[in-house]
């Protein structure tokens, strides 16, 4: 296999496992359940009476839920699977002992995480198309979604590599992922948060995903947020590759 395709066996392994998981209905439901609860609780509850940024709340919420869901699933599946395979099943060691580069391992794991994130997002998009009249799927939406999946799959690799136990991954999730899900513009615009909190909010990558994913075309604000996401993604990719390169038991 050519060096440029050295990532493919890792991706293929994850996809074979993913295909088996998809055959279990529980997996599909678990990917859908939280966004559907949010849609029901916030979307239908507030949707009819509240308008945000010139649109009804449901139309505002759906792109945010897609962003949140892509973040959660790209991140969680990679972080948990990698952590378990490294610490408990020891299957990650097969990759370390294979004659492939650390970046090939990184690419394989990240692409697999992206597929899982995109799958979960697709479920929300399909539901969104049924219940909302808004046309939220634009080329910018798709690019942002892919970038968001890439970014958080990278973060998943980092957590999977750094966490010292499976319980430890929950700590990372509680500190980084949960706050982002609620305070990065998924459920309400970030300009509504108090001034002193804003610098923190704008550090969080999901904030920038939520800014870009709701735009129909790229303006100056969107361009800056897109660049922030690209920089985050590249930095996280480089750091994840470094962790794999320095792996030692």
């Amino acid at each position: 296999m050519r060096n440029s395709l050295a990532w493919y066996p890792i991706f293929l392994k994850e996809m074979l496992l993913f295909r088996r998981k998809l055959l279990r209905l529980g997996y599909v439901f678990s990917a859908m359940i939280m966004p559907i609860i949010y849609l029901g609780a916030f979307g239908w509850g507030l949707g009819r009476s509240v308008r945000i940024q010139g649109t009804d709340y449901l139309s505002f919420l759906i792109p945010g839920l897609v962003a949140m869901s892509s973040m959660n699933n790209s991140y969680s599946w990679v972080a948990n699977a990698l952590n378990l395979s490294r610490l408990y099943f020891k299957t990650f060691q097969v990759f370390i002992q294979a004659p492939i580069s650390p970046s090939a391992i990184m690419i394989g794991e990240v692409l697999a995480g992206m597929v899982k994130g995109l799958f979960a997002s697709l479920l929300i998009i399909i539901i969104g198309l049924f219940i909302s009249s808004a046309h939220f799927i634009t080329p910018l939406f798709v690019i942002t979604l892919l970038l968001n999946c890439f970014l958080f799959a990278n973060l998943g690799v980092i957590t999977g590599m750094r966490a010292k136990s499976h319980e430890d991954t929950a700590t990372y999730t509680n500190f980084f992922i949960m706050p982002m899900a609620f305070f990065s513009g998924t459920f309400f615009p970030v300009d509504k948060v108090p001034l002193f909190v804003k610098p923190i909010i704008y550090i969080l990558p999901l904030t920038h995903t939520n800014i870009v994913i709701r735009k129909s075309s790229l303006d100056y604000e969107g361009l800056i947020s897109l660049l922030v996401l690209v920089v985050y993604a590249l930095l996280l990719f480089a750091y994840g590759s470094r962790l794999i390169r320095r792996y030692s038991e």
């Binding site: 296999m1 493919y8 066996p9 890792i10 293929l12 392994k13 074979l16 496992l17 088996r20 097969v94 990759f95 294979a98 004659p99 492939i100």
Partner: peptide, 14 residues
């Protein structure tokens, strides 16, 4: 959760 063949196939590709 993979078959014997799949395990060897992935390893062989690596």
């Amino acid at each position: 959760e993979l078959t014997a063949y799949e395990n060897l196939h992935i390893y062989g590709m690596l």
